[in-house]
Amino acid sequence: MKERSISFILLITAFGALVALGLITYFIFQAGVPLIAKVGLWQFLAGSTWNPTAKPPAFGILPMIVGSLWLTFGSLVIGVPLGLAVAIFMVELAPAWLAVVMRPAIQLLAGIPSVIYGFIGLTLLAPVIRATLGGPGLSVLTGAIILGFMILPTIIAISEDAIRAVPIAVREGAVALGSSHWQVITGVLLPTARSGIIAGIILGMGRALGETMAVIMMIGNSLAIPVSPLQPATTLTSNIGLEMAYASGQHREALFATGVVLFVFIMILNALATTFVRRPGTSRRSA
């Protein structure tokens, strides 16, 4: 009897995450979907004017979608090559002592609060970019550089695991064929670890897409659709974070609707990452 009730209690706790996800989905959707229905999905997604307090209001989030894409793409341009290089370095090249030092260091990079990165972008990088490249300094470029570093730990950790998980036999086969170390890395290790690495990149993308406070600080938050990385922009997240405090009525609904769009984007990315991680051979669980 006692066993059965314990089992029941555990089952209930096991549903915790699922219930949380359900509640979040329900409450965000019920707060946001009515407005999307009223405005029209296409008008909402492809409308290029966001003026929620005008009469009549305009609810087009294209500028934010474009801003989010710019920023996410930009942070990948910085984060992926750097992250992959560091992962390869830690598995293949680093002297043992250095690898031992680097691991907690990279972990610390992940632990630093995002507002501190945003602050560095705002006070250190933005003035440099304004002085050297022009524009207002608070720009897509500033945000992308800093975000690139913020997503590094995710990319490094998962790529490193994937590279390490390549069976020794595969590597030895390549060495036996007379490949150089670099040829083993590019010809065998990276292709074998590919799906794990892609999963890491997708998760990094999710983090870049979802970051809010740091982005608000660095990106300038203008509502024009950016055509150059030196221009300011607004992202889906930063617009919610910036306007939520002052929003009421339809305006608030529109921000929840923006949240719905963000949520759907993230869920698609999550699903993609999961399918890549589950691929045999590079499963994270086998690490």
Partner: peptide, 9 residues
């Protein structure tokens, strides 16, 4: 106001 303006919270 022009949409190119930077916005702060």
């Amino acid at each position: 106001i022009t949409i190119t303006a930077l916005r702060q919270g």
